[in-house]
Design a binder for these strands. Structure first.
Lengths: 199, 199
DNA sequence: TCTATAATCAAATCAAGATTTGATTAATTG
DNA sequence: CAATTAATCAAATCTTGATTTGATTATAGA
């Protein structure tokens, strides 16, 4: 049984990347199948051999983004380092993920709402986001319980951290004044100071 | 010369509010003129007596949002309080603005990109956002110069603060565990701790 | 009361864009 | 090499939705 003609095969991941880039530029609704197809040198119709619909492409993009970051953060959260070290590592990982993969990260932030009318997908993405948030929450709670962080409202802290980190995908520009590493350190420092006891 | 038949007049502000609400629910591209019109008991066509196009409605929404918050923040920034007090007030004002006017605030954050292909409007909105950011920057710089805040990267700090505050519009729910006031105080406290010198 | 005009509506226009359809091409495997 | 099927394309469908058009209604002022 014959299969993939090697020359003309486009890997699904390439389509996901391409779609994320177009979504980033034009938003989900503003992106046409033709735009996405052009990015990988296909025509609109050809995309339907790879994904059943535009919506499914979006879902794949969001899953890719959530996969990537959740994997990294979970590893850090599960380690045995002390909470402050974990916070620093998590912030680094999150920012690295956001700037190495800006389009996909931005999609998770900005385009999830396009699934509002697809209950299954909407709920699944929301659940995955909550999971991720729970990982962060766990680390902070651990530090507070150990008396290493000041007692504070962990829920608010985590949302605030999340907002700040996600926002990086909005303003970060390749080749700007600071490297991703420097940005991550600066932000990690800020949040760690916020976690200290008042002197 | 005859004018407005009182009974059937819809104030432009009502349309702006309505549009913001629909944008919040469905996104700019996902919102139809009929959706917006229904919100104020009109038909799609009637909206064109109030605004020349859907795009102009979005622009009006964004301007309304920026007007509101800029006015408040500018007043605080210009006052003679000490920088720490100003930061607290600004955070309070920003969050109040975001939660009292969630839809319009969310539009500024999520829908500005829909103007990417309208250079004039795009640039004007971007400029207004930069202005707002500059107000924040000024206050932080003032505190750093006075030796009241630790020397830190003001640019990164402001972006981080912005991200955190704007994100509130994503997760805030009327009638949640905390009031807006409490949320604002918690977040202000976090950022003020981040501004202290390491002990 | 009469007239001009704002506000509105229902229905028509018109274009864009997601998806479908019916070939065509090319590589894999027997 | 022959058969099968993945991958592709160009062109056709079909729907949705922004905008336009041509009445209609109601009120402010003369």
């Amino acid at each position: 049984m014959a299969r993939k003609p090697a020359e003309q095969t486009v890997h699904p991941d390439a389509i996901i990347e391409a779609a994320a880039a177009v979504f980033h530029r034009q938003g989900y609704h503003g992106a046409t199948m033709a735009d996405i197809a052009a990015e990988v040198h296909l025509t609109a119709g050809s995309l339907y051999h790879h994904f059943p619909s535009k919506q499914d492409i979006l879902i794949a993009v969001l899953d890719a983004g959530l996969d990537q970051i959740t994997r990294e953060v979970a590893a850090i959260a599960a380690a045995s380092d002390d909470p402050a070290a974990k916070v620093r590592q998590i912030v680094r990982a999150h920012i690295r993920s956001v700037i190495e993969n800006t389009s996909i990260a931005a999609a998770v932030i900005f385009e999830s709402r396009a699934l509002l009318d697809v209950p299954d997908a909407r709920d699944r993405v929301a659940a995955r986001r909550d999971e991720l948030e729970a990982l962060y929450r766990g680390v902070i709670e651990q530090g507070v319980a150990a008396g290493q962080f000041a007692p504070l409202d962990v829920g608010i802290f985590v949302k605030t951290l999340f907002g700040a980190l996600n926002w990086v995908s909005v303003w970060y520009r390749q080749g700007g004044r600071l490297t991703g590493e420097q940005i991550a350190d600066e932000i990690a420092g800020m949040f760690l100071r916020a976690l200290r006891y008042e002197s």
